[in-house]
Simulated assay, not measured.
Amino acid sequence: MPLQLYDKEKILDACFDVFARYGYANTSTTMLADAAGISKALIFHHFKSKKELYLSVLDRCIEKGRIEMGFDTLLENQDFFAAKEKFSIVKFHYYKSNPGLMRIMREAFYATPDELKMEIQAKYGMLLANNEKEWKRLFAKVSLREDVDREQAFRLVMLTLDYFDNKYLLEIENTDDLEETYLRDFLEERNSFLAMIRFGIEK
């Protein structure tokens, strides 16, 4: 592996830990350089700014999570609600085992720093849109009453699921010892909300 690429990967590894611990706004370039054991000048040789460095770290988190959680294979499930529940279980265990990655993902997509909003939308907007398109494809197979607008029903369900996703990501972040009983109770509460929605929209 070329020395320059090796150095860049080491920088990303070190900076991942700093961003995960302190968040984007509370991380300085001095902190990043100290963690990587190099000068700020060398960091900026590889990355034009702290923002570019953060987005590079985020790229790695997204790719790692997508592969290791098997997002693409989860969408092979033919039932929308079963796929969503399975994905929640996979995410719970994955983020519990990878708390640093979870903190970065949560900050980037659920509590986006103002300085990063435009860049994250520009860089990941298409990825998020494609993910939503895949969920919408599964939702198209859900049988609805004739008087229910499918797009509105999809939005209502996704808003509910997003609320619970953010809730459990926050609780995982703030608690180191969440057990399987938490996951069971979380899914029970979430599914009770979904049942209320489905009772009004499914045949």
Results as ranks from 00 to 15, higher is better:
R150K: 14
I197S: 12
D114A: 04
N130P: 01
K133V: 00
D149P: 08
A14H: 06
L187N: 08
I43W: 06
T73H: 09
F19K: 05
A195Q: 15
P2E: 04
T29L: 13
A108G: 08
R21Q: 15
R198N: 15
N130L: 11
N26C: 05
D7V: 01
I120Y: 10
F71T: 01
D13C: 04
I11S: 09
F186G: 01
K117P: 04
N130A: 11
D176W: 06
N166D: 00
Q152I: 01
E85F: 05
Q152E: 07
Y54T: 00
F186S: 00
D176Q: 10
A83W: 11
V157P: 02
E188C: 11
F71G: 00
F186I: 00
V90K: 13
M105I: 02
F80P: 06
L128I: 13
A140S: 09
K86N: 10
I38L: 10
F47Y: 14
S39N: 13
M102N: 02
E202Q: 14
F80A: 03
D149F: 07
V57F: 11
R66I: 00
C61V: 03
N131L: 12
E146I: 03
K50N: 02
M118E: 12
D7M: 06
G37L: 06
A108D: 06
D177R: 10
C61S: 07
K96G: 00
A108K: 01
F44Q: 08
L55Q: 12
A20P: 05
E9Q: 15
D59A: 13
L144P: 05
G70N: 09
M196P: 04
N174R: 12
F109P: 05
R60E: 13
L187K: 12
I120L: 12
R60W: 09
D17A: 15
Y6I: 03
D185N: 15
F164S: 03
F199Y: 14
